[in-house]
Amino acid sequence: MEQDEEIIAQIWQYVDGDCSVEDSRRIARLVATDEQWAALYAEVLSFNATVAAHLEAEQPSLRFTKNVMETIGATQVLPSPRGYVNPFVIKGIAAFLLLALVVVTGFAVYTTDLSAATLLVPAFTLPHLPVKGIFTPSVLYSVIGANIIFALLLGDVLLRRKWAARGGEGS
């Protein structure tokens, strides 16, 4: 059964013209010589033709077009985004930012002495904080508990999204 599915997947790629030339030749040869491949190929073609032949668009009510035209009667076509966003303004902003970047970088490079003697890293010490009084065990447990709840909520949201993307849209 699994093997059948694998063959069918390859046959669909062949039918859709979605495989390489070598694969295409190989599948054509298998279809011509192997009974199992030939039978599955015939099934796929038959299914494809059936769906294409029998699928028809559903039609809405006869008033549909009239309803749409009545609704848009009071509506205006919105101007194209290009119409209301002046491209010169965008280009002007971009040019200003680029120029500012060049000037600042140039000024920084010009005024900086990059000799080894001036490249001393200043000493930096952390100020003393009374953390022991703040982070008591009960506070820590509360924070951990809240984090676990947030993690579960986040996991729930992600799983729901994943479910919806996989087929949850199914009616």
Binding site: E58, P60, F64, V68, T75, V77, L78, S80, P81, S171
Partner: peptide
Amino acid sequence: LRYVGQRELAEELAQDVFVKAYRCLAG
């Protein structure tokens, strides 16, 4: 119809689609 499965609702959505398309036609 594939999404909602009800003709009345599908018709409302389809109408909404055409109105949106009209409004954004210049785009």
